[in-house]
Design a protein around this nucleic acid. Structure first.
Lengths: 160, 160
DNA sequence: AGGCGATCGTTATAGAGCATTACAATCGGA
DNA sequence: TCCGATTGTAATGCTCTATAACGATCGCCT
């Protein structure tokens, strides 16, 4: 039972410097590399939007998903985030410890918990959504509205 | 001297499932989220291109940069990758242990090493570049050539 | 010449985030 | 009723990265 090499996780979001005079060779023609650079740029906006909340993109995604799909269980949440069940578990614990999310027993399945935002969680998520959305659009303001729409379309097409 | 909270690092590239019937709420209108999904898709192509080589995107980027800028030092390499010097150091050690990169003393600066690909490293990188490029384009084949160009343009504009 | 702050490589340490594995409880279909 | 699949959980380990500190060297200023 060989241990598979740990899957790659993209690295730090310290700003990626564009060093003048350096030869980037093939990198500038790879979608993967450009995606990475753009993602770092967008993260800076996200970071500003959630400053002081100890929130990360996956945490934000999880909260939004739970809010929009009350009663979802941890396994499905993990699949949406692309992490293992044990990770979804830790994430849920973290939310619960802060009183943002609660686990409720489900009548239809004795194994699974249903996840729900608490009143406090709802308020927080509503605020976060507004802020993240505003910062996302603010950072994207270097694009015209039409360009932004086109970019979204192309990204979704690429993601399949 | 407080320790700053560790900066966020985007997570695993296990496939992100698009669960049918689930409400993604505001996520579908955020560039940050779409970028993430597209990046995961492109990583699958990268992974296929480098299978068996124990290569990751940052490792690939580092090798390309060293190959195109022989004599570059570890500090600059770190800035290009967005990692600390200690990380660039570990990366270089890793390459050196495999005989792909060597450190050479520089006449103009007694502190810094100049990084160079070995003969073996050159051959390997040349092969990797071809393969990564092919897979990148293959995965992007869901887009037309014009769409791909436009996407690259928009990403670079966004990354600033 | 001399002094001094900045930079480079290096080492040690710590922590976040994730996978893997294993297990008990439960579900659902043969 | 049996049995494979699924859910939540706990334990463990690994990878990647940051932070901090240090000696050596550089570059500049006096």
């Amino acid at each position: 039972m060989r241990r598979r090499p740990a899957p790659y996780r993209p690295r730090a979001l310290a700003p990626i410097e564009r060093v003048p005079g350096l030869d980037y060779d093939v990198l500038d023609d790879l979608l993967g590399y450009s995606l990475r650079r753009a993602q770092v740029a967008m993260f800076l906006a996200f970071d500003a939007a959630t400053r002081g909340l100890d929130i990360t993109p996956p945490r934000f995604t999880a909260l939004v998903i739970i809010g929009a799909n009350p009663g979802i269980n941890q396994s499905v949440l993990g699949r949406v985030l692309g992490i293992a069940r044990s990770g979804a578990m830790a994430l849920t614990d973290w939310f619960e410890a802060r009183g943002w999310v609660e686990r409720r027993r489900r009548s239809d399945d004795g194994r699974a918990w249903g996840l729900h935002l608490t009143r406090r969680g709802e308020r927080l998520v509503a605020r976060m959504k507004r802020s993240v959305r505003r910062h996302d659009r603010w950072r994207a303001a270097v694009l015209t509205a039409a360009e932004r729409r086109e970019l979204l379309r192309l990204l979704n097409k690429l993601a399949g």
